[in-house]
């Protein structure tokens, strides 16, 4: 059962991710991206990470993508105003992207997960066990990421402030 679910979700997420890049209208791209985020949240649930799935939907699909939509509508982007790249750049990006794809396929074909899967524990992905790791082992990164957000906030207000 979960095997089939995995394949369906994978197909949908790859398909929607491709459509983000391929669709001509920016609004369509954003909608496909939202769909992609939902399928990835489905993957998280399959991996027994319920909290992560919920956060993923709330933060990405909820907050960030709404912001994206706002920006696209405010800037009034559509297919006509999209700049067209010269052919040589398109060719170069296809070649380099294809090379990365080959390397990654080769990598995952030979991938061996050396980490033995732990015993199934349905509480693993809940907030409690996550909090224990976050506030114990990863205390310092958690605190230091406050600096990251602080600098992002100072930066955003600085860019947004009116010049006097």
């Amino acid at each position: 059962m979960s095997n089939y679910l995995f394949y369906i979700l994978s197909f949908l997420s790859i398909f929607s991710a491709l459509m983000v890049v391929l669709s001509r209208k920016p609004v369509h791209s954003v909608l496909y991206l939202i769909f992609c985020f939902f399928t990835i949240a489905g993957h998280y649930i399959l991996l027994n990470a319920q909290f992560l799935a919920a956060v993923h939907i709330i933060v990405y699909a909820g907050a960030i993508m709404v912001l994206f939509l706002f920006v696209i509508m405010l800037l009034n982007l559509n297919a006509e105003t999209e700049p067209h790249k010269p052919l040589i750049i398109k060719g170069a990006s296809v070649v380099t992207g294809g090379m990365l794809l080959v390397v990654l396929i080769a990598t995952f074909k030979s991938a061996a997960m050396s980490v033995s899967s732990p015993e199934f524990n349905s509480d693993l992905g809940m907030v409690e066990s996550l909090g224990k790791v976050l506030y114990d082992q990863y205390m310092l990164p958690f605190e230091v990421s406050a600096l990251l957000f602080l600098s992002a906030m100072v930066g955003a207000t600085m860019i947004g402030k009116k010049e006097i």
Binding site: P141, V144, L148, S151
Partner: peptide, 28 residues
């Protein structure tokens, strides 16, 4: 502060945070 984290990390999560703190401030 980010650059100090970058030269004294002992965990890849810290390295990532250091790089990001350094870069996000610099973008602005």
């Amino acid at each position: 502060a980010g650059s100090v984290v970058m030269v004294s990390f002992s965990n890849l999560a810290m390295l990532f945070l250091g790089i990001e703190i350094l870069s996000v401030s610099l973008y602005v």
